[in-house]
Design a protein around this nucleic acid. Sequence first.
DNA 1: GGCGCTTGTGACCCGGTTGTGACAGTCGGC
DNA 2: GCCGACTGTCACAACCGGGTCACAAGCGCC
Lengths: 224, 224
Amino acid sequence: MTTVLLVEDDPAARQGLELALSRLGYGVRAAATGEAALDGLDEGPVDVVVLDVMLPGVDGFEVCRRLRRVSNVPVIMLTARGDDFDIVAGLEAGADDYVVKPVEPRVLDARIRAVLRRLARAGSPAETWGDLVIDRESLIVRRARQPVPLTPTELRLLLVLSGSPRQVFSRDQLLDLVWEQGYLGDSRLVDACVQRLRAKIETDTSEPRYIQTVRGFGYRFGPV
Amino acid sequence: MTTVLLVEDDPAARQGLELALSRLGYGVRAAATGEAALDGLDEGPVDVVVLDVMLPGVDGFEVCRRLRRVSNVPVIMLTARGDDFDIVAGLEAGADDYVVKPVEPRVLDARIRAVLRRLARAGSPAETWGDLVIDRESLIVRRARQPVPLTPTELRLLLVLSGSPRQVFSRDQLLDLVWEQGYLGDSRLVDACVQRLRAKIETDTSEPRYIQTVRGFGYRFGPV
DNA sequence: GGCGCTTGTGACCCGGTTGTGACAGTCGGC
DNA sequence: GCCGACTGTCACAACCGGGTCACAAGCGCC
């Protein structure tokens, strides 16, 4: 579910938007002031911030700037109708998009999805296998959005296997590809490493979802 | 929408990839031969070219070279599995990346995004990472608004790392990029320099926020 | 030439990683 | 069901990789 942090001081407008966004399937967290908004970020992951420009105390631009210092979360500003100055100032403060008030839920929904889409495209080039995400550039592996700490050998093994999904690798092949070429040792080593890797990325090691054993041949990565 | 020019002579593979890429939200233009590919470029803007190495007539390398004469469009080569020669030849011909066949759409998608992202990084001169600001024009680095005095080597190292955030660099890569190319020395040198840089920009060197160690692989700049 | 900063190198320490062997469990064929 | 082959699991000690430090050569600057 996409979580929206909604920052709007006017109670009527806030509750209206909250309801509308919920109906559209978003999770909504609301804040009435800039300070509350910055706190709201700490209370859990937020996918997008919808931020009113006119706020009592710290205004929307300043909230956006402060927010930018600690996070790259996309920000959509709500500005008074046709106020060019607001729009320019908002984008300079680091906002990703803006919507003029009064806000039409359908429009806001479209903008949110557009911003998220833009971000997803530009985001890190990771491969997604179910809830397992492998980013070959940063070498970060995540399961259910949580980074999985892998040791170098485990990581190399996973990269080799996932690089050719569904292909069966024999133990000897894996020794060549993951360990030094011409490694002379027990091929049981592969089993041990697979086991350690499974322990980290599988929910149920007796029913592996990612790394399957092909009895008599070796191992294979990929959904069945 | 990102438009891909797909060059593949095998009809089955071509149609499969065409479908898969469309589903992933790409616009696809397909060509079966090198000649058709070069024509395809004229028919409208192309964001990335996916190019099979084995083509009847003009082969993929030659297509890539010719293409490079008229365009800077990124090229991803499709090569036979594990064929090192292909990979080297492809990169020499001006390819940006390569993917081994059979192609997994998810992998190709990730590579396309990686190539495009690499290209899009020519951004604003000043980058902000939390409370670290790197101004590539004035070469001034600030932390918490305070200028950080960096030595030339430290600065080069930081610029290289932060220039490709999240990308993992091996020690050898860094020796090439930060020091003279063909530097022959202890790769522990990189460690020492990273340590000095960390001492200046990190608050807690045991929990680095900016420069992460990727055990067994190298270093990476950026948030986890 | 003297000075101080920068940079490359070696040494040492520490903790995590990993290869290994043993044993238990599982699967498939007969 | 029995047996052998194969695989999963575990514990442990050697090892390796990286952090850290000190030091000296190199370098520019005055």
